[in-house]
Nucleic acid binder design. Structure first.
Lengths: 199, 199
DNA sequence: CGCAGAGTAGACAGACCGGTCAACTGTTGG
DNA sequence: CCAACAGTTGACCGGTCTGTCTACTCTGCG
């Protein structure tokens, strides 16, 4: 993630929004505060985005693009086996949680999961955007499972469903870690992933 | 759950708070609206509870007591085997999700998980309360796993950790169902529980 | 009866919210 | 040289937020 100062106003707003909403929540993030932190003025905000919800959608999409390019694609395009890639992904997520939780003074969990729990029932656009982002996550996992199946690492089965199961376990583990405020909870729960992958 | 009219003011506030915060979210639930729906006045609200956060904690504890008495204790004190009890619990949760989502026009997910994602990083009292409620959930699951292990349904293992894994899967599945706005997602993901139980 | 305390009532406060708007600036292309 | 336009600025709006306060009612008890 580039330093905020070097970006243009729109990108600064996007990046600040993602950070603040991850750290706190959508509703606890005020437009005024957000603009201040992004070094932008309210008028600029509403010049680029019709509403706070639209900014949230754009911020999540942008955040996912960064995560995809910075984590998912490198991990899943390696020469490792499907299951190893999966374990590598989990390792990266865990590292990120540890690092961010040290920086912010507590476990933040998954930015998409957080926003989903909070806003899915209140804002349809946000719900749809997150649904798509979840799907993208699952597609990466599914592809790894297919490779694992072809390599004989796991028995043949419904890899799409398996991917959803694994993703659900990830999200649940992040929630437990957040409520316990202990990133190690995530690592321990996640040990079950290999089993779910073969289910 | 008794009809709201027959309860005293404090209980009406508790019940209405749990319902509204489940349906929407903590921050989207206003004190004014809450009082109106509970047929109470602001003065009464702040007579019983020092703040909205304290009400939320009390409402979650009360809701959990209802769920424990109405679902968890009946299910886990039956004469069925440990794994069957677990499946029965999941069945009940699924039925509840289907019913509530028909009533409210969308999947609401887990009231505790929702509040946890939203408020764990913003209100330490809420975080601690939910942490305890999560623990109680896990204790029920763990007890069932111990019975399952003794009956030879699953191999010997760390049943405390297994319980956390299962609980994480449940919470994750509820999140996916909420974001997809489809309660059937929950049922499908949850098919992996038996595997996780034996991991 | 009279009093104490629990609970009720709702006006009020002050901060803060998301969002609007008209005026301004800086750049680009004809 | 100016017109067109993307972007910026910050004052401003009406509404809503949680929480406070004083006055009131009801009930049980000595």
């Amino acid at each position: 993630m580039k330093p905020a100062e070097s970006l243009d106003t729109r990108d600064r707003l996007l990046q600040t929004a993602a950070a603040l909403m991850w750290e706190r929540s959508f509703q606890a993030t005020g437009v005024d505060e957000l603009c201040q932190r992004a070094n932008a003025k309210k008028g600029s905000f509403y010049h680029f985005f019709p509403s706070k919800s639209d900014l949230a959608v754009a911020a999540m999409e942008s955040f996912w693009e960064h995560a995809r390019a910075g984590i998912f694609e490198p991990v899943f395009s390696s020469s490792e086996s499907g299951l190893t890639q999966l374990r590598e992904l989990i390792e990266r997520i865990h590292e990120l949680q540890v690092q961010v939780s040290a920086e912010k003074g507590g476990v933040l969990g998954c930015p998409f999961g957080n926003l989903g729990q909070e806003m899915a029932r209140q804002d349809e656009k946000i719900r749809e955007a997150l649904q798509k982002i979840f799907d993208s996550h699952c597609q990466f996992i599914e592809a790894a499972l297919i490779r694992a199946e072809q390599a004989g690492e796991i028995p043949a089965g419904d890899n799409r469903q398996r991917a959803k199961n694994i993703f659900a376990l990830l999200e649940g583990a992040l929630l437990l870690a957040k409520v316990a405020n202990d990133p190690q909870i995530f690592r321990r729960v996640i040990s079950a992933v290999t089993v779910v992958a073969a289910a």
